[in-house]
Design a protein around this nucleic acid. Structure first.
Lengths: 125, 125
DNA sequence: CTGGCACCTGGAGTGTGCTCCAGGTCAAGA
DNA sequence: TCTTGACCTGGAGCACACTCCAGGTGCCAG
């Protein structure tokens, strides 16, 4: 079973060393193993969880809600229904985020076109 | 020519009164008119600009960059080429944002499906 | 003439999510 | 043996974008 150093995990997940420690401190990442010298050694499972965190973070989930999700995971299999509910609600939120982004992007593109039209008008005679 | 009170503008644009004042203070919103009593009176132009701000903000543009854009607008028509450049760069960013969001959303949906599959396995005998 | 409301100002405070720092441990290579 | 580099801890600090507050003005309805 492979283990990873903090540096490797940082590299793989894109989280800084400080962020990894921060996530552990606040309980978003529980029970990271240590070697004899007290240094962290991450498992595949930890990395997988961090990749999940990455997805949730990048889609705008606040840390407080990720903590709720982490708590559900910690409580075991009987919370799977709740986890589905939480993720589906978040998925809907992401859908709306994208829709809003598209709408705003349309307005911005419209503005760009407006500027291009202004520039196309012959200046002077 | 229509003018609007702070309350009306807040209502229309979704920015709080404090945010409107804040934007004016930092120079994102220049030269808002006043009535005899010193109260703000916004023009159609102001509201239009705020709607632009809304688009840029909602698509993740930091205030510092909106200030750069505002400065270009203030400098007059010879900066239109720069404005197009700025907005097109931002538009590309939005495109990438959406792409990332979609990728992450895919992973989340995958996780939801995994949970659903787990639940579908008959428990016990 | 008295509320009550919308607004004003300058400045302080807040929430989120990290990020940095000082001072220390440990292991490996020159 | 010495140095370098990755890592450790607890706690302070920071960037961003607001948000709140105290104390005050102006105007209109009752």
């Amino acid at each position: 079973m492979a283990v990873f150093t903090p540096g490797q995990v940082s590299e793989e997940t894109g989280f800084s060393l400080d962020t990894l420690r921060y996530y552990e401190r606040i309980g978003l990442l529980g029970n990271v193993g240590r070697n004899a010298a007290g240094q962290r050694r991450f498992t595949d499972g930890d990395v997988g969880w961090l990749n999940m965190i990455r997805c949730l973070r990048d889609t705008g989930m606040p840390i407080a809600e990720m903590l709720r999700f982490a708590e559900l995971v910690r409580q075991g299999d009987h919370t799977i229904r709740d986890r589905i509910e939480l993720l589906e609600a978040h998925d809907d939120g992401v859908e709306q985020q994208i829709a809003t982004l598209r709408r705003r992007q349309g307005a911005i593109q419209h503005k760009i076109q407006y500027y291009k039209d202004v520039m196309a008008i012959p200046q002077g005679v």
